[in-house]
């Protein structure tokens, strides 16, 4: 490595000497950049090319690029605006739909409530009628039962009187009238 470095340094010195010799050869020498007679043609052509470049850039090339970029920006802006508008419309439609839905739901529940109320009223009425009827039948039945019971009790006393007369006759030979026998029987209905 050190030998390589030495060679490098020696070579650098060599290059320097070569260059110095080369420049010594044409004595006009020095840096080519400082060679004054070369200034005029460079300046002239720099001016020509730069002015031409500026003209081409400002009149042709840049407006074309700017146009496309502008157009793209506009297009994107337009598309975004359209998307925004469509989104607004969708939102509105969605809102209308929601409203219709909630309206429908409201009216449906109203109808259901009404129907339920109506049905409930009818059922109540029917039930009441049936209950009334039943109550009347019950009352009738109770009345006839009471009547039958009274009648049955009456005939029970009658039969008991007859039985008493017969039994007394047969056992004691005492004539008892039916009236007396009946009176002697404690009232069964008093029990």
């Amino acid at each position: 490595m050190i030998t390589a470095m030495t060679v490098l340094v020696a070579e650098a010195l060599d290059v320097g000497r070569d260059v110095a010799e080369a420049l010594d050869e044409h004595k006009s020498g020095g840096l080519p950049q400082l060679h004054a007679p070369d200034f005029a043609p460079q300046l002239f052509w720099l001016a020509v090319t730069f002015v031409l470049l500026y003209w081409i850039m400002s009149k042709v090339a840049l407006p074309r690029i700017g146009e496309v970029i502008e157009e793209r920006r506009d297009r994107i802006q337009r598309d975004l605006a359209a998307a925004e508008r469509l989104k607004g419309e969708t939102d509105k439609a969605l809102q209308t739909y929601e409203k219709a839905l909630s309206d429908a739901r409201g009216s449906a529940s109203a109808i259901a409530r009404k129907t339920r109320d109506e049905l409930g009223a009818e059922v109540d009425k029917e039930r009441k009628a049936v209950e009334d009827q039943l109550a009347k039948k019950l009352a009738d039945a109770e009345a006839s039962i009471a009547a039958t019971k009274t009648k049955a009790l009456a005939s029970v006393k009658d039969i008991a009187g007859d039985t008493v007369v017969e039994i007394v006759n047969a056992l004691t030979n005492i004539n008892v009238t039916k009236d007396e026998a009946v009176r002697a029987i404690p009232s069964g209905s008093d029990k």
Partner: peptide, 19 residues
């Protein structure tokens, strides 16, 4: 080693203006 000096291939030759 200095053989190429005459052809002027020094590091500054590339900057020369040629008409």
């Amino acid at each position: 080693m200095a053989g190429h000096a005459a052809e002027n291939h020094g590091p500054m030759a590339q900057f020369e203006i040629k008409r």
